[in-house]
Design a protein around this nucleic acid. Sequence first.
DNA 1: CATGGGTTGCGCGATTGTCGCGCAACAAGC
DNA 2: GCTTGTTGCGCGACAATCGCGCAACCCATG
Lengths: 257, 257
Amino acid sequence: MAEEELELDRRDWIAGLEKGLRIIEAFSDAHPRLTPSTAARRTGITRTAARRYLLTLQHLGYVDSDGTHFWLTPRILRLGWSYFDSAKVPRAVQPFLQRISLELGGSAFFAVLDEDEVVFVARNGIGRVQSLGFVLGARIAANLASAGIVLLACKPPEEVDRWLTGRKFIPYTPHSYTNVEDVRSVIEKARTFGYSILEQQLEQDRRGIAVPVRTRAGVVVGAISVSLPIGNETTQQALTRALPVLREAEHALLALL
Amino acid sequence: MAEEELELDRRDWIAGLEKGLRIIEAFSDAHPRLTPSTAARRTGITRTAARRYLLTLQHLGYVDSDGTHFWLTPRILRLGWSYFDSAKVPRAVQPFLQRISLELGGSAFFAVLDEDEVVFVARNGIGRVQSLGFVLGARIAANLASAGIVLLACKPPEEVDRWLTGRKFIPYTPHSYTNVEDVRSVIEKARTFGYSILEQQLEQDRRGIAVPVRTRAGVVVGAISVSLPIGNETTQQALTRALPVLREAEHALLALL
DNA sequence: CATGGGTTGCGCGATTGTCGCGCAACAAGC
DNA sequence: GCTTGTTGCGCGACAATCGCGCAACCCATG
């Protein structure tokens, strides 16, 4: 899958669409409101064109404006919603996530890889990595979440090597791995055991445990993970407690997909 | 706000962007995988053009394909994420939602209006209107949720009238209002009391209570709502229990916005 | 109060990107 | 077998999109 056809016929390339999406993605935490010129600078589009795209988006209701500044409206969420609506897997796993989070007392997630990030596409549980404002569609560097590690472990080693080389690991906690070799060894452990466990990489006093989810054909479609408070539970205790529950969900899903 | 400038200079209109977004929104539950021709039929674009847009989206990584069929990838979620990332209000309300859901034992939401639908842009709580696969960005007809009613009640009456006329109310439960006058009276009650309460409109045995959230300038930016199991609590009991908690959050937010 | 560096929107003429037709190949269904 | 639906692809033509450059504007600084 994901065969980026390296060359795309210039006739089949819609420049306007790419620029428009670039404009939308130019909005962010640091830049919640954009003027035509700031949008232009952030996207590499000319100011005049950026303005045209913003006006078009405004007319479509995806952005709103006071005349000079533009900001996104919740209408934008319809686009992401198209995905949730159309992707069967996230919906299929929901009940399992609920069971897991109830049984283990943490948050359960279903996540997939997108480029070098792990994206959480389904979730259930009280807990909150909410310190980060954790919602669906959230994405972080794959090495920081157990689900990301186990998904990387499912990829061919060459690809993982390519992924690792030249990467900067920005730490989220004092325990976060910043060394390539540390990350590589975690991935390799995940490959041999078929699950991954990560402690205090993303958040203090929390550990994540993840297993891959496959179709009957063996294709990896994502990973189920659970985030647990460490408390005074040992790593081994947490594993013997959580892993059977995750495995059970994994096998039940195998029958569904 | 949201001044749809009725006429937009043809020079400032990017047709390619609109068509591309139409293509993305053409994916849905019933049509998770599209071919160029089905996409064309669903969007009113010609088949040749639809194919070009799909190929462009594929090249950008927003859709994937097996050659003939196309489907959305989680990359699409980056677009919605731009909104969550840039909208301060949803993030500002998170801690309040948490307090509310803990204190009242239900799910707390923050919602805004988009056209004739209410969109849930923040959420906290164990509960799940999960029967519907309830996630962030979810949207339903405004009359079915307490947040939607109270937001409508904040709009000028003429606009509400326009909203009500000619609308079809599709019931979600046996108790759902299907009559225009019933809905109108609920909205008017919400207008006079400054809060709304809705029982079993969206889900059986659940009631929702909502209050509007304003900036200090008085502009309505959304609504906070809580969804509670009805159990054997009377309407009056639920109100006296929940309303003070919601009002407290409302006032605390007033100071922040 | 003026001056300058940063904006803003807008009109124009030119190019290039996007259009849909129509063909050929292929697949499924009486 | 022929029919009726696909599919991708090449072409020529039109218009949609381009970026330049001007004039007005706002805000800070001297």
